[in-house]
């Protein structure tokens, strides 16, 4: 094998890989926004529709991202806030927070009415709870409906822990996960109120 041959192999491979890599980077950048929109639309929109009402804009496009903390590795944790507007005026904001359940984190989307600062409703987005146990609780109007109308500063613990929420019988862990998620969501809301409403 001549030196020329080896060189041509290296060059061709490098050039092809480079061009392909560059092309992919461009495609990735071009589609990133659309993909995020699609993901939110397909995963979060059902929850948003369930808890928001009386708006005339598209909350999926009317959203901002906030850095609301750092995880264990020191990476920023972002929370996406969705705005429901009527006639250009914000009537509610919705965002997602997480609480540890029986099987990993339970994601809860919650809506806060503006300016009353009371909960307009909550809905589960992502979870891996046992469908026949925790899943039932997280879809139960009886349990999830308790949050509606509560003030942002209420104590969202289970009644057994001195709070205002009655756990779903048979699914205490999942109920607790929901209350934890709402509690942490409310903390985020209180802490970043000026950014969210600003």
């Amino acid at each position: 094998m001549s030196f020329r041959e080896i060189l041509s192999m290296i060059v061709v491979l490098a050039v092809v890989s480079g061009v392909c890599g560059g092309g992919l980077a461009v495609v990735k950048m071009q589609t990133a926004e659309q993909i995020e929109y699609q993901k939110i639309k397909n995963i979060k929109e059902p929850a948003l529709k369930a808890i928001l009402s009386g708006y005339d804009n598209d909350p999926v496009t009317d959203r901002i991202k906030l850095v609301t903390g750092k995880d264990k590795k020191g990476k920023d944790v972002e929370t996406t806030v969705f705005y429901a507007k009527k006639g250009g005026k914000v009537i509610a904001v919705a965002f997602e927070a997480y609480g540890g359940g029986f099987e990993g984190n339970v994601g809860i989307m919650m809506a806060v009415k503006i300016p009353d600062e009371v909960l307009d409703g909550i809905a589960a987005t992502t979870h891996s709870e046992t469908p026949s146990v925790g899943g039932v609780a997280l879809n139960s109007p009886d349990f999830m409906g308790q949050f509606k109308g509560k003030s942002v500063s209420d104590n969202f613990a289970l009644s057994s822990g001195g709070g205002a929420i009655n756990g779903y019988s048979g699914a205490t862990v999942s109920s607790e996960a929901a209350t934890k998620a709402v509690t942490s969501g409310m903390e985020i809301f209180k802490k970043f109120k000026s950014e969210i409403l600003g």
Partner: peptide
């Protein structure tokens, strides 16, 4: 990968 990204962006279902 282009197909995958495009499908994710325009045909998520």
């Amino acid at each position: 990968i282009i197909v995958e990204l495009a499908m994710q962006a325009y045909f998520y279902g």
